[in-house]
Design a protein around this nucleic acid. Structure first.
Length: 239
DNA sequence: CCAGACGTTGTT
DNA sequence: GTCTGG
DNA sequence: CCAGACGTTGTT
DNA sequence: GTCTGG
């Protein structure tokens, strides 16, 4: 799955890479992070009806309009590609509110019987940013304290079966839009071809990703910095 | 009809 | 075991 | 995703 | 909001 990732590329570079605008609301409060967890505020690319793209902030964990409260988002950080078109929590967003979540790379933990969980870091082989296929929703609610109406945008990352690049580590992977020619189609809220959309959520072609073993520093969200993605060379000793 | 859920992952 | 917080 | 808490009363 | 289970 995808439950922790990295985005340290400057906003201006991301905007150029995705041909997206950066609204003033976006420029403030964005910091590079090598340890982005669910329920935090993340960056996603969306498109206007006219096709204009922009970067915006979304809370990671999709909260459908009918949810009782924001805590719903804790269990909807990922949406399975196999069922995203029909699950009540995701189908509406899948139809018309798709987004791209940029990442420098992401982490997976390999769990082996009898061994300690080992984190791995995945990036594109060519070093360019990853474009995760995502969904977003707007959630409206009344603030507890003052009763005023508020609204918040939330998002989820679609997952799919692991490709041969990742299956030795984990059996799932994020859906990655490879090739910029797919971005416009994915972001077009008027595009109604379910099969075309689902085809974009298939495992990335073998060879797209590379991985390296990293230190368990990433386990705690209190740790953050480029050292989290440094390759761990030593094999753990048996003695 | 009303009440209650609405999700993913990993592990056994 | 399960939920919340980061 | 993982780490850390999981509780109440009363006093400072 | 919409579906499933009772």
């Amino acid at each position: 799955m995808c439950g922790r990732y990295v985005l340290a590329t400057p906003v201006e570079e991301l905007a150029a890479y995705f041909s997206a605008q950066v609204p003033p609301s976006m420029a403030d409060g964005f910091h590079p992070s090598w340890n982005i967890p669910p329920t935090s505020n993340i960056v996603a690319v969306t498109a206007d009806p006219d096709g204009q793209r922009s970067l915006n902030r979304f809370r990671w964990g999709l909260v459908p309009s009918w949810a009782k409260d924001l805590s719903f988002g804790a269990k909807t950080i990922n949406a399975r590609a196999e069922t995203v078109a029909t699950k009540p929590s995701f189908r509406s967003a899948f139809r018309s509110q798709r987004c791209i979540i940029p990442a420098d790379g992401y982490y997976e933990w390999k769990t082996t019987a009898g061994e300690v969980k080992q984190p791995y870091y995945f990036t594109r082989r060519d070093g360019s940013p990853l474009a995760f296929a995502g969904l977003w929703e707007r959630y409206q609610f009344h603030h507890e304290a003052d009763g005023q109406p508020r609204s918040l945008v939330t998002c989820a990352i679609i997952t799919t079966a692991a490709s041969s690049d990742v299956e030795a580590i984990h059996n799932r992977m994020p859906a990655i839009l490879t090739g910029g020619d797919l971005w416009g189609r994915w972001l077009d809220g008027a595009l109604g071809d379910r099969e075309e959309l689902l085809a974009m959520c298939r495992p990335a072609p073998p060879g797209t990703l590379v991985t390296k073993r990293v230190a368990s520093l990433v386990n705690s969200v209190r740790n953050n910095g480029p050292e989290l993605i440094e390759e761990l060379k030593d094999r753990p000793s048996l003695f």
